[in-house]
Structures are given as C-alpha cells and as structure tokens.
Simulated assay, not measured.
Amino acid sequence: MRDRLREKLEASRDQFREFIGFDEFSEKQRKILEANIFLGKMLAIGAVFHAVLFLYPSTVPVQEAFAGVTTSFMNFFGYDFSHYSVYIMDAGTGYEITQDCLGWKSMMAFTALMASSGRVRKNLRYLGLGLLAIVFTNFLRVVTTIHLSEAGIISFEIIHGFLWRWSLTGVVLAAWMIWFTYYRE
C-alpha cells in the first residue's frame, strides 16, 4: 500500500515537473521555485498554527506541572517559593506560568521550519533533539527570568520581553540552520 502511494506521488511529481518544464529551468529559476515551495509549506503550516491559536486549547495541567518543577528547582538553589496552580510565589512577588511560558510556539516554529525544508520522517532524531534543546532552553529562560527579577538586576519586562524572547528565537533558528546545513537528508 505504502509503495503504491509512493509510486503515485512520484508519478504526479514527475508529471508536474514535465508540465512546468522543470528540466529546462536555469539554476536561478530552480532556486526560486524551491524558495516558493518552502514558503508555500510554511504558509500551510502557519494555517495550522493559527487554527491552534484560534482553538486555544487548555494547557493548565502542563502549566501547573511546569510551575511545580520550576518552583522545586528554584527552591533547590535557596529560594523560598511556593507553588499554587500556575503561580510561583514568595512573600513579596509572584510569577504566573502562562501558556506562552511553555515554549510551544518555539517548538512549533522549529517543527515548521524542518517540515518545510526537508523530509521530517528521515530526520525524526534531529527533530527530537532540537525540540529537547528548545524545552531545556525555555526552562532556563523561565528560571533565569525569575532569578534576575528577584535579584533586581534587570526589570522583569526587559528580561522577559526582549532578552529571552529573542534569544529563544535565535536558538530555534540556530538549531534549524545546523540541521539544514549539516544533517538534512
């Protein structure tokens, strides 16, 4: 069944290439076509992303678990936080673990970049490693944001809104570029 489907897809691809005259394309035209295919895939995946945003599924259990792990981690290093639902609190301040604190948008962006530029099935190992790196970096982002805010070194808004949001985007792009340049099959 799978082989028949693969054969039909390859035949359709060959017919499409023949129809548009792909073999007669210059190198520049081929690169433009590849870029347009990449952008088309990103737009399709973007539609899925917007559907998720529209449906806005409840992630409260995951947020609570993340808040609990973060509280335990911070307390291991000498803080005296308590954890209630999605909140991390001490005597003077409190932090809410929102849906965006989970790093799901960064994970989806990384998955979208990989899916748009290669065969994901053949690269599942790297996809898993990249997602694991994003999860770890996101956890580090939340912990350092709380730590630096508690220390009063930099305001919470600057740390959260600028430094870490953009650095997590950098991690996503770096992981994708490494995969694209060295490991893509």
Results as ranks from 00 to 15, higher is better:
Phe139Gly: 13
Val120Arg: 10
Tyr182Met: 04
Lys8Ile: 05
Asp90Glu: 08
Val143His: 04
Asp23Ala: 11
Phe38Ile: 08
Ser12His: 14
Pro57Gln: 09
Ser85Val: 09
Phe180Arg: 11
Ile158Thr: 13
Glu96Phe: 03
Glu24Phe: 13
Leu39Ile: 15
Ile32Pro: 00
Ile97Glu: 01
Leu173Arg: 09
Arg119Cys: 12
Gly130Cys: 02
Phe22Glu: 09
Gly152His: 09
Glu157Ala: 09
Glu96His: 06
Ser155His: 08
Thr145Gln: 10
Phe73Tyr: 15
Thr181Tyr: 06
Val48Glu: 12
Ala151Cys: 06
Pro57Thr: 10
Ile154Glu: 04
Val172Ala: 03
Arg125Cys: 05
Met108Phe: 15
Ala175Leu: 09
Lys8Gln: 07
Ala115Pro: 01
Leu102Val: 04
Gly40Lys: 15
Glu18Arg: 11
Asp100Gln: 15
Leu5Ala: 06
Asp23Glu: 14
Asp23Tyr: 05
Phe162Lys: 03
Leu53Lys: 13
Ile37Thr: 15
Ile88Gln: 03
Ala44Glu: 10
Leu131Trp: 03
Ala133Leu: 05
Gly46Met: 06
Phe180Gln: 08
Glu34Met: 10
Val135Ser: 11
His160Pro: 03
Ala44Pro: 04
Gly161Val: 00
Lys122Ala: 15
Ile32Met: 01
Ala65Thr: 05
Phe81Asp: 02
Glu157Gly: 03
Asn138Gln: 07
Gln29His: 14
Lys8Met: 05
Tyr95His: 07
Gly78Ser: 07
Tyr182Pro: 01
Phe49Gln: 06
Glu24Cys: 11
Ala44Phe: 11
Gln15Gly: 06
Arg4Asp: 08
Arg121Cys: 05
Val142Asp: 02
Val62Asp: 01
Val48Cys: 12
Asp90Pro: 11
Ser167Cys: 14
Arg121Thr: 08
Ser82Asn: 06
Phe136Asp: 10
Ser58Leu: 05
Phe180Val: 02
Glu185Cys: 09
Glu24Ile: 09
Asp100Gly: 15
Gly68Asn: 00
Thr59Arg: 07
Ala109Asp: 04
Ala174His: 09
Arg6Lys: 13
Lys8Ala: 07
Glu150Arg: 04
Glu24Asp: 15
Val48Lys: 06
Gly46His: 10
Gly118Tyr: 11
Ile20Met: 03
Ala44Tyr: 08
